[in-house]
Design a protein around this nucleic acid. Structure first.
Lengths: 148, 148
DNA sequence: ATTGAAACGCCAGAAAC
DNA sequence: GTTTCTGGCGTTTCAAT
């Protein structure tokens, strides 16, 4: 895992569908060499997959909320969140609270419904997202790229 | 935006690098027709991009934390988070708290450093992630696919 | 106007060096 | 890691509905 691998990951993170040829020219290598490196990154699990980013608002999911839970029923809450179509991410955490869910839904009414249902499993505290900055899985900064 | 578009998005979300030919066979259309649909979804912004998923742990970013802030200096905090290499996501929210950041870092020591620095901009409450479920931007359930 | 069919050009993967 | 080569895919064009 050297600096070139980091550069490759940065380019792939910006655009998963970049051609191996173009990627090769960006890192000053031949394309078979780049294909080899990408393959290794896939095999050792560093690259977990390639995903298409969809804009929730275009699908009429206008409201995003971060819901914090105080609960002792983590397993039940986990199952509820996993099966709920509006929960995009959820985290079991150690801290003031014990569970966090990111919900993306149509309206305040569907959000209300979610909150009501979730109350079976814990005490929710809802925070509606006003604006957000969602970048990437990892920020591959120049510093990281240079240190290798 | 019909049921076929939803199906296309689901497949693309699962695997951004699927070939148009294979995608076409999955939705029972010809490949030019699918290419046309994908192009439209890209142009109207429904498809925001194609991203490669990187495993932070493989890059020695062992600790993920959700940090909640009570603050009145949202703009300053926003700028701090945007420029910080360990902040992967941040949200301005309306609720009990006013700002949420997702941090991915090497160790408790680098996390401590982040917390100390962030205290200039607000009062942080740190929740270390024990386990998580991060699926996708949108859950395209069967219900949604059928209703069109 | 929208869909299916064929031809072109380009890329990914394999083999040889 | 590089160059060469080949098979296959994406893309464009055209014909037909």
């Amino acid at each position: 895992m050297d600096a070139i691998d980091y550069q490759i990951m940065r380019e792939l993170q910006l655009n998963a569908k970049i051609s191996m040829k173009e990627l090769a020219s960006k890192v000053f290598l031949s394309s078979p060499a780049v294909i080899e490196r990408v393959k290794k990154l896939e095999e050792n699990g560093t690259i977990k997959g390639y995903q298409t980013l969809i804009d929730p608002e275009k699908l009429d999911k206008a409201i995003t909320a971060i819901v914090l839970f105080e609960t002792t029923k983590c397993k039940e809450l986990y199952a509820f969140c996993e099966n709920h179509p509006d929960v995009l991410e959820c985290y079991r955490v150690a801290g003031q609270i014990s569970y966090i869910a990111k919900v993306c839904t149509e309206s305040v009414h569907t959000l209300e419904k979610f909150i009501d249902e979730s109350m079976k499993y814990g005490s929710p505290s809802t925070n509606i997202v006003l604006s957000s900055q969602e970048n990437m899985q990892i920020k591959l900064t120049d510093k990281l790229l240079n240190q290798g």
